[in-house]
Simulated scan of single mutants.
Amino acid sequence: MELNQTADFTKCCKDSGFLMVVKCRRENSALKECLTAHYTNPDFYEECKMEYLKEREEFRKTGIPTKKRLQKLPTSI
């Protein structure tokens, strides 16, 4: 996904407040097009699938979710 579309949409929403539904239609459409292009890309699908399978395999070995494994342990106990 292009970082630009995400940043544009985020900025528009922050700047518009409650009016974002009306004011950010163009940015929302650009973001949807970008996401759709990635979701229909077979290479991207395979990359995501392999990442998921790797994380699942690691969880089955350790019983610890990826998020918890990546957190730093406290240095003083």
Rank of each mutant, 00 (worst) to 15 (best):
T66C: 02
T10R: 09
P42T: 06
K49Q: 13
F59L: 13
F59T: 04
T36E: 15
C12P: 04
G63R: 02
P42L: 05
L73K: 14
I77S: 14
E33R: 14
C48Q: 14
M50Y: 06
L3M: 11
T62Q: 05
K11R: 15
E46V: 06
P74A: 11
C48S: 10
Q71G: 00
Y39V: 07
C34W: 02
S76N: 13
R60M: 15
K49L: 13
L35C: 06
T40G: 04
R60F: 12
D43V: 11
Q5G: 01
K54D: 12
E57S: 13
C48I: 07
E2R: 09
N28E: 14
L73C: 09
C34R: 08
P74V: 07
R25H: 05
C48V: 08
E47I: 07
L70R: 12
K68Q: 11
Q71F: 00
F18D: 12
C48H: 08
K11S: 12
N28S: 12
K23W: 04
Q5R: 04
F9I: 06
P42K: 03
E2M: 03
T10G: 02
L19V: 08
C34D: 15
Y52D: 03
E51V: 06
Y45V: 11
V21Q: 05
S76K: 14
E47M: 11
G17T: 04
C24D: 04
K67V: 00
M20D: 07
L70F: 02
K23P: 03
C48A: 11
T10E: 10
F9R: 06
P42I: 05
T6L: 14
R60W: 08
P74F: 03
C34A: 15
F44I: 09
E27L: 03
A30G: 01
D15R: 02
G63Y: 03
K11T: 14
K54S: 14
K68Y: 01
E27M: 05
E58N: 08
Y45D: 09
Q5K: 08
R69T: 01
F18C: 02
C24G: 04
E46Y: 03
N4D: 11
L31P: 00
E27W: 05
E47N: 12
M1T: 08
G17P: 09
L3K: 13
F59M: 06
Q71M: 10
K14Q: 12
E47C: 02
Y39R: 15
P42S: 06
A37Y: 05
F18P: 06
M1I: 10
D15L: 03
C34Y: 04
L73N: 09
E46P: 00
N41Q: 05
K72G: 07
N4H: 05
F18L: 11
E55M: 05
Y45S: 06
V22A: 08
E57L: 08
M20P: 01
E51H: 09
K32V: 10
R26L: 04
L19R: 12
T10W: 04
E55N: 11
T75F: 06
N28R: 13
T75E: 15
E57T: 13
E2Q: 07
E2T: 10
T66A: 12
R56P: 00
R26C: 02
T40H: 10
N28P: 00
N4F: 02
T40Y: 07
C12W: 03
Q5H: 10
C34E: 15
H38C: 07
S16E: 06
N4C: 01
E58R: 14
E51K: 13
I64W: 00
F9G: 01
T66G: 00
L35Q: 15
K49H: 10
L70P: 00
